[in-house]
């Protein structure tokens, strides 16, 4: 490729990893698609449960041993764990000007925490 372009100095160091940033962007958009569906199902389920006056025990009765519900909430939690930290990362970059590598570690830890605690909650209603 004969691309001999004169590029002025001063290109930002934090923009070095175009591939990493692009994959984060793709992951956030893809997880948003999953979330759009999951949030809808989740809200409809809540409204259904409330309008029919289901008790906590009755709800647990339906979720206990329900692998479909567990699979659904596992997917939901995974989408949240991917989506939310990436958005928070962007907020930290734009609002706080925080663009150091330490931000990626914090965001990674947050993603893991959301996934673990979310899955723990899903597992709890599965066990009932």
């Amino acid at each position: 490729m004969s691309a001999e372009i004169q590029v002025p100095a001063g290109a930002p160091a934090h923009a070095a990893s175009a591939r990493f940033e692009t994959w984060l962007w793709i992951a956030q958009r893809a997880s948003a698609v999953v979330l759009a569906l999951c949030v809808l199902v989740h809200l409809v389920t809540i409204i259904y449960a409330v309008r029919h006056g289901l008790t906590g025990a009755a709800i647990l009765g339906r979720t206990r041993g329900n692998t479909a519900a567990l699979a659904f909430y596992a997917l939901y939690v995974l989408a949240i764990a991917v989506h939310a930290p990436i958005g928070l990362r962007t907020l930290c970059q734009e609002w706080l000007g925080w663009r150091a590598a330490s931000l990626n570690w914090l965001i990674g830890a947050l993603a893991l925490a959301l996934f673990v605690f979310g899955l723990r909650a899903g597992w709890a209603v599965f066990l009932g």
Binding site: M1, S2, A3, P12, H14, A18, E21, T22, W25, E94
Partner: peptide, 18 residues
């Protein structure tokens, strides 16, 4: 003739994704 480099240059936090 510089598509790949151009796309890499415009990606990311300082580029189109911002």
């Amino acid at each position: 003739g510089a598509r790949a480099e151009r796309l890499a240059a415009v990606a990311g936090d300082a580029g189109c994704h911002a």
